[in-house]
Amino acid sequence: MATSQELRDVLAGGDTLTIVCHNNPDPDCLASALALGRIAATVGIDERRILYSGNISHQQNRAFVNLLDIDLRPFEPEAVVDRPEGSLLAFVDHAVPESNNEVPEGTPVDIVVDHHPVDGIEARFVDHRVEVGATATILVEHLQNLGVELDATLATALLFAIRRETLGFLRGTTSAEYQAASTLHDRADRDLLRKLSTPSVSGVTVDAIADAIRNRVVRGAVLITHVGRTIERDALPQAADYLATLEGVETAIVFGIVDDAIHVSARSTDARVHIGEVLDAAFADVGSAGGHREMAGGEIPLGILAEYSADDETLVDIVEQVVTARLLAGLNISENGDSVES
């Protein structure tokens, strides 16, 4: 496993640091970026920037950025391509160029810190731990090992990120999350934590969740549903979290059309199902998908189907049929809900 001193040594060799978040960054990614930037500051890197692509549409993510006053900038290709010597590039909470980010394939990366299962990571410093519940947990360890001060803002960001990523320490949690939380607890701003945990919800998000509830189809312990078209991509994981709590449901998958792509969010408590592998098997040939045993997501470009108008119900019907069929096949379930013999 990579050491904190190795991370410090790589940073010490740089003059500037560009941290690229994954598409549509969440609190785990954003808090990890803040933490890495703070470590970089201790070795004398004054020029630091955090870039993101996609949208920050989830109400908790917007509150996270606004309340913590995080300086985010839209992704700039020129910031990562043909970088001058001494300009470092880092990924947090993702790991491979052109996979859930807009960094061109083949771009050299200096630092990767991630907890998602993924292959093909190449960087000068790699801390990749799929066994932990959050990337923020890894950064807390490095902050401690390097003696970096944890002020209230950083501690609050990291603690909220760990809580959110693990659904309140109920999903994918390890002893490392509890140890990190213990370190952060007394330093965090309790009032700010409460505000982050209870942001206002937009009407569009409520509508999307209502559509997911109305369109649900249950096959045994598996629930599959869609929201049609929506501008609130982050309504999908919220709907998946809610629907996974329905009685008798062990796996909930929600998909919808956002701009020119199909987005998928899935949750599972079924010990027989690795939902990340299911999504990867279902959509690897047409898009990018995967994740953990209990939580996963994916994005599939619409391709030629994007030519349909935004209000064309035919497109929604086609997407529903195709995506549902692929999911049922990936889950080894027939249309009537029976398991298919392998």
Rank of each mutant, 00 (worst) to 15 (best):
174 T>S: 15
169 F>W: 12
169 F>M: 14
163 R>Q: 09
152 A>H: 07
170 L>T: 15
150 L>S: 11
181 A>Q: 03
167 L>H: 08
155 A>H: 11
171 R>W: 07
178 Y>Q: 04
154 L>Y: 10
170 L>E: 15
158 L>N: 08
163 R>T: 08
161 A>S: 14
162 I>A: 07
150 L>E: 12
159 L>Y: 13
169 F>R: 00
176 A>M: 10
176 A>W: 00
171 R>K: 11
151 D>I: 03
151 D>C: 04
178 Y>F: 15
179 Q>C: 03
172 G>E: 08
155 A>Y: 05
152 A>E: 15
165 E>Q: 15
156 T>E: 07
156 T>F: 00
174 T>W: 00
172 G>Y: 09
156 T>P: 12
171 R>M: 09
167 L>S: 14
155 A>Q: 12
156 T>K: 05
152 A>C: 00
174 T>N: 06
180 A>K: 01
180 A>M: 01
171 R>I: 13
180 A>I: 01
156 T>H: 11
174 T>C: 04
175 S>K: 06
162 I>V: 11
158 L>I: 04
157 A>H: 12
154 L>P: 13
161 A>D: 13
166 T>R: 05
179 Q>Y: 02
160 F>E: 05
157 A>L: 08
163 R>K: 10
172 G>H: 06
159 L>F: 10
179 Q>D: 15
157 A>F: 09
153 T>I: 09
177 E>M: 06
164 R>H: 14
156 T>L: 00
174 T>P: 06
163 R>P: 01
181 A>V: 11
170 L>G: 01
157 A>T: 13
169 F>E: 11
159 L>M: 13
166 T>F: 05
161 A>K: 09
179 Q>A: 15
155 A>E: 12
162 I>S: 07
152 A>Y: 03
150 L>I: 02
166 T>I: 07
159 L>V: 06
173 T>Q: 02
173 T>G: 01
168 G>L: 04
153 T>N: 09
171 R>G: 01
155 A>V: 05
160 F>A: 02
170 L>Q: 14
167 L>V: 11
173 T>I: 10
177 E>W: 02
161 A>T: 12
165 E>L: 01
168 G>H: 05
168 G>F: 05
160 F>H: 14
165 E>W: 01
162 I>D: 10
173 T>A: 11
154 L>E: 12
156 T>I: 03
169 F>T: 08
174 T>M: 03
178 Y>K: 02
162 I>L: 09
167 L>E: 10
153 T>V: 13
152 A>F: 01
167 L>F: 06
169 F>P: 01
150 L>R: 09
180 A>W: 02
152 A>R: 15
164 R>C: 07
162 I>G: 05
154 L>S: 11
150 L>P: 14
169 F>L: 14
151 D>E: 14
165 E>F: 03
168 G>C: 02
151 D>F: 05
178 Y>W: 13
164 R>M: 10
181 A>D: 03
152 A>L: 00
158 L>K: 04
152 A>M: 01
166 T>Q: 07
165 E>H: 09
154 L>A: 08
181 A>N: 04
175 S>Q: 13
159 L>W: 06
177 E>D: 10
154 L>C: 08
171 R>A: 02
178 Y>V: 13
179 Q>M: 09
152 A>N: 05
172 G>D: 09
168 G>S: 12
175 S>R: 08
158 L>W: 04
155 A>R: 11
172 G>V: 10
169 F>Q: 04
150 L>W: 07
165 E>A: 15
160 F>L: 05
